[in-house]
Amino acid sequence: MTTVSVDGVEVEVAAGTTILEAAQLAGRWVPTVCYDERQAPFGACRVCMVGVVGSPKPLPACTTPCRDGMEIETEEPTARRVSRAVVELVLSELPEAPAPHTELAQVAERLAVGEPRWGGAVHRRDDDLRHPYLALRHELCISCGRCVRACDEVQGAFALTATGRGFEANIAAGLDAGFEESSCVSCGACADTCPTDAISEISLVKRLKGA
């Protein structure tokens, strides 16, 4: 067993346990966006940064394994500044604030990230509402990869792909021809995991729009 302390709380963990899992055992909150317990840790979003005593810079909690004697500080100022900045940058690319029930909105609220300070380009609106159940609103995609991994690692349909680079990064169903023309089996695991409602249930989108 390995013993670590999280904000002063000592926990014993099995070998291979990540800092994020140890923090959860200790009852401490670490902000996450690209993390889903049903999927292998991905480490893409850099929101789960924490301080570790002796480390020259913050470390991502979801992919860093615990070492014996590690002293973890979830609210270490540099780490927290990175988390906030990342969330703020992500928000700045969206044409509208994410709906209050989404994970991204809740993380932003808890980190006290308000209206982004940076103006500039936002994602172009591009809604695919052809499927009977699944809405794909590309403008809300933050390229966290959770839907792609849910499709691969939970369902095994391999229907979603990451596309584009940089600001144009997004996701596509099949060869961007929509869910029905892809290998999608309509399980909805992507909508279930999406932290921004870029993929969501079409019935809920219609409700949002008052239809």
């Binding site: 994020l20 899992e21 923090a23 959860q24 055992l25 909150w29 670490v30 902000p31 996450t32 993390y35 889903d36 317990e37 049903r38 209050p100 029930h101 989404t102 994970e103 809740q106 993380v107 808890r110 279930d192 995991t193 809920l204 409700r207």
Partner: peptide, 16 residues
């Protein structure tokens, strides 16, 4: 294992 923010936040929102 509990996660920091439940994926299932949708259960406690005012839409339902």
């Amino acid at each position: 294992m509990a996660i920091a923010i439940p994926t299932d936040v949708k259960t406690s929102d005012e839409r339902f």
